[in-house]
Computed example of a mutant assay.
Amino acid sequence: MENISFNTHDKRKVFRLLATRIVLSLLAGGAVATMVYFISSKEGFYLPAGLLVIIGFLLASVILIGTSRLLMADAVNKKKTVTQKTVQKNTSNDFFKQMESPVSARCTQKQSFGASPNDAPNEYEVQAGDEKLILSPELYDAVHDGDELAIHRSAKSHLLLQITKI
Results as ranks from 00 to 15, higher is better:
Leu52Pro: 01
Leu51Glu: 04
Ala31Thr: 15
Leu64Asp: 05
Thr20Leu: 12
Leu51Ala: 12
Leu58Val: 10
Ser40Phe: 11
Ser41Thr: 11
Glu43His: 12
Ala31Ile: 14
Ser41Asn: 14
Arg16Trp: 05
Phe45Ser: 11
Arg21Asn: 03
Gly30Ser: 06
Ile39Tyr: 11
Lys42Arg: 15
Leu26Lys: 03
Ser41Ile: 08
Leu17Cys: 03
Gly44Arg: 09
Leu17His: 13
Leu51Val: 04
Leu27Trp: 03
Ile54Ala: 14
Ser41Lys: 15
Ile65Met: 08
Ile22Lys: 01
Phe45Thr: 08
Ala28Lys: 03
Ala49Asp: 12
Gly29Asn: 09
Ala33Val: 04
Leu64Trp: 10
Ser25Lys: 01
Phe57Tyr: 09
Ile63Glu: 03
Leu64Phe: 15
Gly44His: 07
Val62Ile: 10
Ala33Leu: 10
Val62Arg: 02
Val32Met: 12
Ser61Phe: 00
Ile55Lys: 06
Ile54Pro: 00
Leu18Asn: 02
Gly50Asn: 13
Val14Ser: 06
Ile39Gln: 09
Ala60Asn: 06
Ile54Lys: 09
Val23Pro: 05
Ile22Val: 06
Val36Lys: 06
Leu47Ser: 01
Ser40Gln: 12
Leu18Val: 01
Leu58Thr: 05
Leu26Pro: 02
Gly50Ile: 08
Ala31Lys: 09
Met35Phe: 11
Lys42Phe: 10
Phe15Glu: 00
Leu26His: 03
Ser41Asp: 12
Leu52Lys: 04
Tyr46Leu: 09
Leu52Asp: 05
Thr20Pro: 03
Leu58Asp: 00
Glu43Cys: 11
Gly44Leu: 04
Val53Leu: 04
Gly29Tyr: 06
Leu17Glu: 13
Ser68Tyr: 00
Phe15Gln: 06
Tyr37Arg: 14
Val32Thr: 10
Glu43Pro: 00
Ile63Trp: 11
Ser61Asp: 01
Tyr37Asp: 11
Ala19Leu: 10
Leu51Gly: 11
Gly30Phe: 08
Gly66Tyr: 01
Gly56Lys: 01
Val53Met: 01
Leu26Asp: 06
Leu64Tyr: 14
Leu17Trp: 05
Leu27Asn: 08
Leu52Gln: 02
Leu24Val: 13
Leu52Gly: 01
Met35His: 11
Leu52Cys: 05
Phe57Ala: 03
Thr67Arg: 11
Pro48Ala: 05
Gly29Leu: 07
Lys42Gln: 14
Phe45Tyr: 15
Leu26Met: 13
Ile63Tyr: 10
Gly50Pro: 07
Ile39Asn: 07
Val62Thr: 07
Leu17Tyr: 07
Glu43Lys: 15
